[in-house]
Every structure is written in structure tokens, then in C-alpha cells.
Amino acid sequence: MTQTIDHAEAKQLMQASLDGELDAMTQLRFDAHMAACPRCSADYASLKALSAAIRAQATRYTAPAELRAALAKALPIDAAEPSKPSNVVPFHRRWLGPAGAGFAVGAALAASLAIMIDTHSADDMLAAGIVTAHVRALQPGHLTDVQVSDQHQVKPWFDGKIDFAPAVKELSDQGFDLVGGRLDYIDGQEAAVIVYRRKLHMIDLFVTHTRHGGGHPDSLPAAHATPSGYNVVRWSDNGQDYWAISDLNRNELGDFAKAWLGR
């Protein structure tokens, strides 16, 4: 942390920082150089603008409904009867087998999110529960029990519903809008869930009594991906455990944790 970095190294690290691939220490050193160097920080601003423009504007193509339907119909048939090695013939015909053996795409989707979590440790169990709860909450109408955009409405709502007082923070000036809150039940204990939004991405912040102890964290928490593709970041603060989960990229979810911790 004491070692500073120079221009050349900053340039080398720029892409990795943008992509959330730096370890915490290197990230801090990189940030320190950016704060002190207008030229590098202008370059970094361009790079960030490009990434933001691509993410906001470039087309994410979605599979046509016919293709999805054809797949649903075809899968069980092809499973019983392995297909021939691929060649240049168009594949459409192969998919038009007898109907009736389809599967429920929605159910499969929800189930896979829960199943694919590795359940080795208590934390993993908790993570699995949180992913499941997050997915459940994303179903229409389930996201929030109290829907407001003001911390003074969310915080009192939890009073008397749970036996601890979760901190509800207003972070909209940092790009995270408060959407509301709800109660959930994670791995055998009650959790307060505070819901934020970043553009189109929902962030569920689960708050429970701590099982790790400890006060304000010394190191910045890092976001990591769950096997189901959601990103998770956890920290403990003031006797409570926090888990933020979202389909937001790791970098921005890390920013959320930083914003929450006031750094």
C-alpha cells in the first residue's frame, strides 16, 4: 500500500481496473495514482466512457421465441437419440420432432439458479439461500413489501417486524436509487432486505445479525460471482452481516459496497 505506481504501470493496469480484475491492494494504489495524475485520469475517463457506452447502448440480442420453443421441444428427443456429428446442413429439420415432451423453461431456470450453488460451507449455504431469495423476489410483484424512495420511510417500516435495526442509507447521489424494503428468511434467520436499483439492475441488500463478529471492515470487500451468474459481495459492520446480490457487474457492485461503507 505504501508503494506508489508510475505512468507506465498505471497504463498497464487501466484495463484491469476497469474490468474489476485488480486485487484490492493494487486497486488502491491505482486509485491513488489516478487521483494524483490528470493525464492518466483523463485516459481512464475515456476508457470508462467507452465501456459505459457499449454496455448502455450496444445491442444484446435475445433468442427469438421460435428458437426457444423449438429447443424446448427438441431437447428430450435428441437426448434419447444422440445426433450425428455436425456438418453444414441447416439444422432446423432435426428440431421438428413430435411435440409433447417439452419442459417448463421458467421452472428450469429458477431451479438451476439454486442447484448450481456449491454448498460446502456455511457461507456457501447462505449464499445459496440468498440467490434463491433474490430470484424469488425478482418474480413480478415480489420485489418489495414497502416501496418508497426515501430512507425515512424504509427504516421505520422495519421497526417491530425484526429485532434489529438495519441501517438504511440513501445512495442515490452515487447512482444507487433506493427502491424499498422487504422481509425475508435466510438460512434459518430473519433478514431485512433493502432494495436498490442501478439503471435496470436490481440490488438486494440482505441484512442479518452477524455470525462473523467484528466492527467496521478493514479491507474493502470484493464482489465475486456465484455459479449461477449473480454477483455477490458481503461485509460485516456494526454487529450486522450484509450481503449485496445483483446481476450488476462485479465492478459496479463493488462500487455499491464502497458507497455503502462511505469510502
Binding site: 440480442y61 435475445t62 428430450p76 437426448a79 434419447a80 431451479a111 438451476s112 449461477s228 451468474g229
Partner: peptide, 25 residues
């Protein structure tokens, strides 16, 4: 085979749009 297919569907379907997006690009 049915169980395998069901497991495959559970694994693959959440990423079906991603698969299409990559193929499309």
C-alpha cells in the same frame, strides 16, 4: 436420459440468450 436432459435444461436455459447473443455477434 430424461434426467440428464432435465439437468441439461436447468443448466443451459438461463444462458440461452447469452448463447444467442454471442452467436449473433
Amino acid at each position: 436420459p430424461d434426467t440428464d436432459t432435465a439437468r441439461f435444461a436447468e443448466m443451459a436455459m438461463p444462458h440461452f440468450d447469452a448463447a444467442y447473443n454471442l452467436a449473433r455477434w
